[in-house]
Design a protein around this nucleic acid. Structure first.
Length: 518
RNA sequence: GCUCCCAUCGUCUAGCCCGGUCAGGACGCCAGGUUUUCAUCCUGGUAACAGGGGUUCAAAUCCCCUUGGGAGUACCA
């Protein structure tokens, strides 16, 4: 039994609290699942709490069903939350749309302390400025240089500001980036990162629709929820200076940050996207997703026959490694072995082939009985077959090594259920000789005399018969396989015949001979 | 364009922090072996420190530059 005791408690003074904070704008992509996984592993390996917070501050991007999808996906993966939308907890609510009322006061506080200001600029005007800058191959930045020329409270007296606010002129609240300072940040994965403040822009903290932006909501909630470690994707790294500045403006203690490298597409470069899955034929989502608007279906790992523990294991090793040769980890073992300092800095290309290999490993580790029961369900729904468990267990034990997925068992074992309807031409040519019909008929007669139709007895009988008649093992067995299976595949013939039973085996031999005579 | 991040076999990666092993493992691929077929399995092989400069007796490892790649650059998250 692996112990789940916190291991670096001594250097972790506070309670460890991490959050996974997705936006319900669509299905959770496998990169997101990995981020959630690393958060979970980090929390559990340090005896901490894992929190699910839904970041739905953008009402226009809300997608029905996405939130449910996210929770179902993580549950399927075995990633459990201590607090969250459905778990509850004393730091709720855990949906930002339900926390709407708390953000305004924080935006106001920043204005009062001179860290933020009202901006009345119209979107069209800003877009125009951006366009103009782009034409000159520059980027428009709302910062110390430009803010003095724009329509904001910095350039207005108190009366003007009041007037605008009273009249209901739409406004946003922007953070005022300090001039000419160096912001030094510490990232648990990348170490020290330094940025000059003049490269940053005065980001919008509070939108004209009364909702906070990600930046404000994120900092306020992480503070209020006492988040100790922010573990998120690398795409957030450019926002880190802003976030650090926000903590400082509020005078709050900062959490520790860890920015995870991206998951890259298998071929070429760039981050893994839904398109790559369609193009290369692998799922990028944990569960199947049907887009509520277009009706478009994206395939999922679950529906493709992956085991959740295999999927999680594969994901865990994409960017993290234990420092030794172990590759197979249960969730408990992952929790025990995980540490942030063994997470790499560079992006990882996803390899669909290795994903299959992981599933193969989990499939062959399964007991015959377990696997048989999984396959029985498949046989019932896909083939409308309800064979005896004993038979299925036996078959599974013979062929599980050859497949990666439960659904592939059929390809390797259909002949156990259906007598061959046709015979592989190539094999006929190679294995069906002029003597074969007679030899096979004799063999059928011989097998008919066998009382105890077990693999062991069958083998013994056939071997003796071959020896007594000075026949060739290869010639006989291959011809026999052709009649029983219809092709040059399958496990040991004795085993096949035992499962088929005496009557069926002999029947197949005789009808095969007949068919091949024509 | 600008800002930041990154760089070991085709892929995931160990080694880097604390310079000194034929640069190790896994997936894939190839070959051989076992076998009544196919697959499994076993054995072996393939293949990498992006380039250039420094520092040093010694550099994958430390420093700089170049190149390449990625991310960000919204009243999206």
């Amino acid at each position: 039994m692996v112990s789940l005791q916190p291991k670096i408690q001594l250097i972790m003074p506070k309670n460890i609290r991490v959050r996974f904070a997705p936006s319900p704008t669509g299905p959770l992509h496998m990169g997101g699942v990995r981020t959630a996984l690393y958060n979970y592993l980090f929390a559990k390996s340090n005896g901490g709490k894992m929190i699910l917070r839904i970041e739905d501050t953008d009402q226009s991007r809300f997608v029905p069903g996405a939130e449910h999808y996210i929770m179902e996906s993580l549950a399927w993966c075995g990633i459990q939350f201590d607090e969250g939308v459905s778990e509850g907890g004393s730091y709720g609510p855990y949906r930002q749309s339900e926390r709407k009322s708390i953000y305004k006061a924080y935006a106001d506080q920043l204005i009062q302390t001179g860290n933020a200001y009202y901006a009345f600029d119209r979107t069209e005007d800003l877009n125009e400025l951006r366009k103009q800058a782009e034409a000159k191959k520059k980027t428009f930045i709302y910062n110390a240089q430009t803010r003095k020329t724009l329509r904001n409270s910095l350039n207005m007296n108190d009366d003007e500001i009041k007037k605008h606010l009273m009249e209901g002129t739409p406004y946003v609240v922007r953070f005022m980036i300090p001039e000419n300072i160096c912001i030094t940040m510490n990232d648990l994965i990348r170490g020290r990162v330094t940025v000059k403040s003049e490269t940053l822009d005065d980001k919008v903290l509070f939108k004209s629709d009364g909702m906070p932006t990600y930046h404000l909501a994120n900092i306020v909630d992480d503070h209020l929820m006492e988040i100790s470690h922010v573990i998120r994707g690398e795409e957030w790294l450019p926002s880190l200076p802003l976030h650090v500045l926000l903590y400082e403006a509020f005078g709050w203690e900062k959490p520790q940050f860890a920015h995870l490298p991206l998951l890259l597409k298998p071929d070429g470069n760039g981050k893994l996207s839904k398109r790559d899955g369609d193009r290369l034929g692998f799922p990028v989502f944990p569960l199947q997703w049907k887009d509520p608007k277009s009706g478009e279906i994206s395939s999922g790992y679950r529906e493709n026959g992956y085991y959740p523990d295999a999927f999680v294991n594969m994901l865990a090793l994409l960017g993290w490694n234990p420092g030794n040769d172990q590759e197979l980890f249960s969730m408990t073992e992952l929790i025990e072995a995980f540490s942030l300092d063994r997470v790499g800095k560079s992006g990882s290309k996803f390899d669909p082939e290795k994903a299959k290999w992981f599933n193969h490993q989990y499939l062959i580790q399964r007991s015959d009985k377990q696997l048989a029961s999984e396959w029985k369900q498949w046989l019932k729904t896909e083939k409308n077959l309800e064979p005896e468990s004993v038979k299925v267990v036996k078959i599974v034990s013979l062929i599980k090594e050859r497949v990666n997925f439960v659904k592939e068992l059929w390809d390797e074992a259909s002949f156990f259920f259906e007598a061959p309807e046709s015979y592989d031409e190539k094999v006929i040519k190679k294995r069906w000789k002029t003597d074969s019909p007679e030899q096979m008929e004799n063999l059928a007669t011989l097998l008919d005399t066998l009382e105890d139709f077990t693999a062991e007895k069958i083998d013994e009988k056939i071997k003796n018969w071959i020896a007594d008649n000075e026949l060739s093992m290869g010639v006989i067995m291959n011809a026999l396989r052709l009649l029983l299976v219809g092709a040059a595949k399958g496990p040991h013939l004795g085993d096949i015949m035992e499962v088929l039973g005496k009557a069926e085996s002999i029947k197949r031999i005789r009808s095969g001979i007949k068919t091949l005579l024509n």
